[in-house]
Design a protein around this nucleic acid. Structure first.
Lengths: 335, 335
DNA sequence: ATCGGTGCCGTTACCGCTAACATGAGCATA
DNA sequence: TATGCTCATGTTAGCGGTAACGGCACCGAT
């Protein structure tokens, strides 16, 4: 690596002050065409690239945002990340990616480390931290947006899916096909989405005149393996179950596998509903009925909201997407 | 956002010089226990967090690396990204993620923007740029590692899969089951992996005494849709085809769908082999025979190599993983 | 008494850039 | 001629840290 060309090198070579060079780069203030051309030529010739870190120190802006996700290998998140990154890229922003691997300590450390890096804002997907901790961590950031997690709006904007509604859609679909013994594999207890979906499901059950505790519920890791284990256990404990509502598609696919192992056919013996409509859902056999959410759009919306907040503009501080039920082969009613 | 606490604030409050505070933070030089305790207490009390950007300017190190991938939404990359991020995280490094969306101009711009951000090193997955351009872009970086792309070793380390070998495995498997009319859906022409796999496949064909041009080859985007379109076309043009070797699992799943549309049964009429062994491969129906590569390990190895190069240590500058053929239901021979 | 070491800490200068103010030329106006 | 404006550029002083060096007290050895 050669020594980097600095702005003073350019200034010296072009025989102007470095302030003039700075003005040319940032298109600020008045510059004669002649000087501008000269400076640009020298920049080109020397291959000068301004240090965004020095600039960041001087301006207190880094043109970088932080993105915190539980696990980018979970197919729910890459599309969101794409939505965010595309939006940010167009505006000249970079994105620092942090995985928390479902570990609250790492989540906390990640948010702090982004603070150290002086990012202009952060987006946290599916935060798992307790509310007071989360608020404390959000506080020092210039701007923040949460995805699928709520928090007082002066601390962060929120982009979320109406999880309760989505769960209601799924439950009503199952009830309509006479599946009343519904098991709910709820994902991590720390997931707000999981909690809201449980509430939505229970509400739908209640509205159908069923006892609220008629929903068999269990927790699990939001992975294929987690779903497999949870489904085995839930079905073993409640053999009457004829439908499973799952935290996400991965969990649902784990449940699918559990059914296969137990010689239960899907959807005849057990109907299965996933969540998120990831690529997987349409590809497994039987194809998964799932509650679909617009992942890329959520990412883009979150980025948009973050930039508004960075700019200090007052805008909407909550965007709610209505999910949609995609009926496929893992539940009855698919023609 | 409150004003950030600076090192001078801490110094003033603790009644020492900021240099002393710096020494405490960085565990450099000799500090009396008493002073250390005092300083740490003040840091704690004031909630001081050193600005890594100011530090970066002073030390010329940012503790940040760049990661360039074609598309994080392609299931091949998130696991690699996880391998990299985990490794980096443990060493106190952050990762800036850039998607190129298969656009060479964006790839180029991304590599330059990472240079501007003064990352300590970059990892580029599946670079699609032409060799001279790529080399020019690598040059100014302190350290670089490429995944599945080769380049002179003083410019970058390389972690790759032996693609030719993997393609050979797949072809030999097909030939062993009397599939000689093999179509190859090669992915983007700019993908070095695609090119190497084609060579490996052709070599295996030749070794079996078949004409080298007996491999029907076509290009496509590395996506589900790309595979679907390419398979339709290839099969329509060559109805004798009884096996398809695909660029990756997504493409293979597209091909699977094309076969379904054309009423060709898999594997009886057409055998299909994917590549990468992503989560999808085991979940689709029929489950996909695929050439498996250790994605997480590749990511971790690339990060390890990058840190060695950042530290200026001479180490191995090429690591090659041998892929493995996972036989599932989309080809004959799965019991 | 002098010297050299070492433990502890402060001072100064700079990293590469920009904000804010200063300067000076040229020109129209009073 | 003096005044005030605009335009184009230079100068100064940081942003928040660290590197490099310097200073001083205290100690044992000569």
């Amino acid at each position: 690596m050669k020594n980097k060309v600095t702005i003073s090198d350019v200034a010296r070579e072009a025989n102007v002050s470095s302030q003039t060079v700075s003005r040319v780069i940032n298109r600020k203030g008045e510059i004669s065409d002649e000087t501008r051309r000269l400076v640009l030529e020298v920049i080109q010739r020397l291959g000068y690239r301004p240090s965004s870190i020095a600039r960041g120190l001087a301006t207190n802006r880094t043109f970088t945002i932080g993105l915190v996700v539980p696990d980018i290998a979970n197919p729910f998140f890459p599309e969101i990340a794409r939505g965010i990154e595309d939006f940010a890229w167009e505006r000249g922003y970079g994105v620092i990616l942090c995985n928390t691997v479902e570990d609250p300590a790492r989540e906390e450390a990640a948010i702090k480390s982004l603070e150290d890096k002086r990012v202009d804002g952060i987006i946290i997907c599916s935060a798992r931290l307790a509310q007071p901790t989360l608020c404390d961590l959000l506080q020092p950031h210039r701007a923040a947006v949460l995805i699928n997690r709520t928090v007082p709006s002066q601390l962060a904007g929120v982009v979320r899916v109406d999880d309760a509604y989505g769960a209601g859609l799924a439950v009503n679909h199952l009830l309509a096909h006479h599946r009343r013994e519904i098991g709910f594999i709820a994902g991590p207890a720390s997931s707000q989405s999981g909690v809201l979906r449980a509430e939505g499901a229970q509400k739908a059950m209640a509205e159908a005149g069923l006892a609220i505790d008629s929903l068999r519920k269990t927790e699990c890791k939001p992975t294929h393996a987690g779903g497999l284990a949870a489904a085995r256990e839930l079905i073993a404990g409640h053999p009457e179950i004829n439908a499973l509502l799952c935290y996400n598609d991965l969990v649902a696919i784990g449940a699918l596998q559990a059914c296969r192992e137990m010689n239960l056919s899907v959807p005849q013996d057990v109907a299965i509903v996933g969540c998120d409509d990831t690529l997987l859902a349409g590809l497994v056999q039987p194809a998964l009925t799932t509650v679909s959410v617009p992942k890329y759009e959520i990412g883009a919306a979150a980025a948009g909201m973050l930039f508004s907040r960075i700019a200090g503009e007052a805008g909407r501080d909550e965007i709610v997407y209505k999910p949609e039920l995609i009926v496929r082969q893992s539940t009855p009613g698919c023609q």
